[in-house]
Design a protein around this nucleic acid. Structure first.
Length: 556
RNA sequence: UGGGGGAUCGUCUAACGGUAGGACCGCGGACUCUGACUCCGCUAGUCUAGGUUCGAAUCCUAGUCCCCCAGCCA
């Protein structure tokens, strides 16, 4: 696992699934743990999947077992190669390695087909000629039992013949299905003769046009687990009702192993909509720039926003695993991101909304170079030389002509420190015709070079700056909450809850030369502003990953 | 009014008959060449009602509330 800042002394946080695996290993029930992460390639992975990935792969790492990446590709109508590729890229990026254990449910189509015939031969499956509507009508309701299909008692020979002809493509989509013969009066609707094979005459991303009948989830998942000798098949709560069917199939088929299914509560995050269906809507409806839009909860989006994979792993660890439905506050994710980045991100200076400052008593010319620490949290990161000159840019927010009492930054007559540079004092303010402040005139104290006054004099604030003649211009994209409420969609369509100001683009930010020249990957800190990373778009474009905590702004 | 799950600080999560703990958020304070970081402190919880017990979040009984299931999706 790739690791940036995994604290070596991190306490092991257990959970009920981990306890079960540990127990099975300790009791000798299993000699090794084998788990799997089984995505359907019908969309991009999101942070909810990360929880499952971390759980499954984490178990393999901790117990020396293995975790398979298996694509649950049984529905060619929704699945695409693009998603298969993206999912592999994202799992790797998150920091996990399936090694040689890359599988596809579609690899097992021949075996699953053979098992379907076995079920028919043993009298536990039949071909139903009813339409989807008829099947639904006969299924009963939550409180009433279903009715047996008129085709339920066909002979094994007839069923076999029909099923083979389904496979041969003799019937149109939906004309017939194969159903397991279980119990139409079961309280568990999944046991009311569930459909297990259907006719879908569509091209499959992996098997092409080889098949026109496909097993569904229930008939593929447990058997795939058995084929791969999965010991602990971990899925989310909504599949609890499928467990009896999962077990029924394993009991009625000559499978090579008996995996067990365990369910946990999926991740739900405040200020987020996780459903793939909705994410597809956002992408296709043009509400975001794509699956990797930095406002998306997809792993691709989080990556583009600059969130380190280690922070996501840590977050999943802290969020925990339980059986109770829960909604985790995104603030917990934010905390993990800030904690990680504070320790790892190199510091640079950048001014988002520039205000020109001229230091009147500083000599004209090219100026000088000052040493700046790259990361106060990491001495090994060293330092760099940053150009300083008579004309600078500071942040507009760092100046107020008529400051309130608690404003410590620059104002007329007030002395502040330019980070790693000099103390300056504002002597006059220049405005345009409209009265807007356009430039500041200041003086500096040459004795404070580097940022300290020999006489021990203190200043209340340190502000960041960029030398005007050396500054490079960059575009900076400031991302804010994507939704205006913590529970988007709670009052109807989540599209209506999208924050119209979730993206603010700053076209002419001023950045120090070293930042412009930086070609390394990774997220950096713009001192006093937040964490940012280079966007893949051409040019000098930065995305804000997350701002620094700002207790001053909060107090306003 | 069927079947399956679940209820612990605002949020997430521990405690497995023996002091309800941690994290996030929030609020104070200290420190500070990032109003950051760090450190210290504070606030705050066992769904309800009975019962068993020396002792109950935990066991029992009866309720209440919440989630999932009626795709030829996964």
């Amino acid at each position: 696992m790739s690791n940036d800042t995994a604290p070596a002394d991190a306490p092991v946080i257990s959970n009920f699934v981990r306890d079960i695996v540990a127990g099975d290993l300790a009791s000798g029930k299993h000699k090794t743990s084998v788990t799997r992460f089984p995505p359907e390639p019908n969309g991009y992975l999101h942070i909810g999947h990360a929880k499952s990935i971390c759980l499954n792969f984490g178990l393999a790492e901790e117990f020396g077992g293995r975790c398979h990446l298996r694509f649950d590709d049984t529905n060619p109508l929704k699945e695409e190669q693009e998603y298969i590729d993206a999912i592999q890229r994202d799992v790797k990026w998150l920091g996990f390695d399936w090694g040689k254990n890359l599988f596809y449910a579609s690899d097992y189509f021949p075996q699953l087909y053979a098992w379907a015939e076995h079920l028919i031969e043993t009298g536990f499956a039949y071909v139903d000629d009813q339409s989807a509507d008829e099947i639904r009508a006969a299924r009963g309701t939550l409180t009433e039992p279903g009715k047996n299909s008129p085709f339920r008692d066909r002979s094994a020979a007839e069923n076999l013949d029909l099923f083979r002809r389904m496979k041969a493509g003799e019937f149109p989509n939906g004309a017939r299905v194969l159903r397991a013969k279980i119990d139409m009066s079961s309280g568990n609707i999944n046991l009311r003769d569930p459909v297990i094979y259907r006719i879908i005459d569509a091209e499959h991303p992996r098997t092409g046009n080889q098949w026109c009948i496909y097993p569904n989830y229930d008939f593929a998942h447990g058997q795939s687990d058995a084929i791969e000798h999965i010991t602990h098949s971990i899925c989310t709560l909504e599949f609890s009702d499928h467990r009896p069917l999962y077990e029924w199939l394993l009991e009625h088929l000559p499978v090579p192993a008996k995996p067990r299914q365990y369910e946990f509560a999926k991740l739900v995050l405040t200020h987020t909509v996780m459903s793939k269906r909705f994410l597809i809507t956002l992408v296709q409806g043009g509400h975001v720039a794509g699956w990797d839009d930095p406002r998306m909860p997809t792993l691709a989006g989080l990556r583009r926003r600059g969130i380190p994979p280690a922070a996501i792993r840590e977050f999943c660890k802290r969020a925990g695993v339980a059986r109770a439905n829960s909604t985790t506050d995104v603030a917990m994710l934010d905390a993990c991101v800030r904690e990680n980045l504070n320790k790892t991100a190199p510091r640079y200076m950048a001014v988002l909304r520039p205000l020109k400052v001229v230091i009147e008593n500083y000599p004209e010319g090219n100026g000088e170079t000052l040493e700046c620490v790259n990361n106060p949290e990491d001495p090994a990161a060293g330092s760099r030389q940053v150009p300083f000159s008579r004309e600078l840019y500071i942040e507009q927010d760092d100046f107020m002509e008529n400051p309130p009492k608690k404003f410590f930054r620059l104002s007329p007559g007030m002395e502040v420190r330019l980070r790693y540079a000099y103390f300056i004092t504002c002597t006059s303010v220049i405005k345009d015709a409209a009265g807007n402040v356009t430039e500041l005139r200041c003086t500096y104290d040459p004795a404070t070079r580097g940022g300290n006054a020999p006489d021990g004099r203190k200043v209340k604030a340190t502000i960041h700056w960029v030398s005007a003649p050396h500054a490079q211009e960059a575009e900076v994209r400031l991302y804010d909450a994507f939704y205006t409420r913590p529970d988007p969609g709670a009052n109807g369509d989540a599209i209506k809850d999208i924050n119209p100001k979730s993206l603010e683009v700053i076209k002419h930010a001023k950045i120090e030369p070293a930042l412009a020249a930086r070609n390394a990957e990774g997220t950096v800190q713009f001192e006093r502003l937040g964490y940012f990373c280079r966007d893949p778009d051409p040019g000098l474009v930065f995305n804000r990953t997350i701002g620094l905590r700002d207790t001053y702004a909060k107090a306003q």
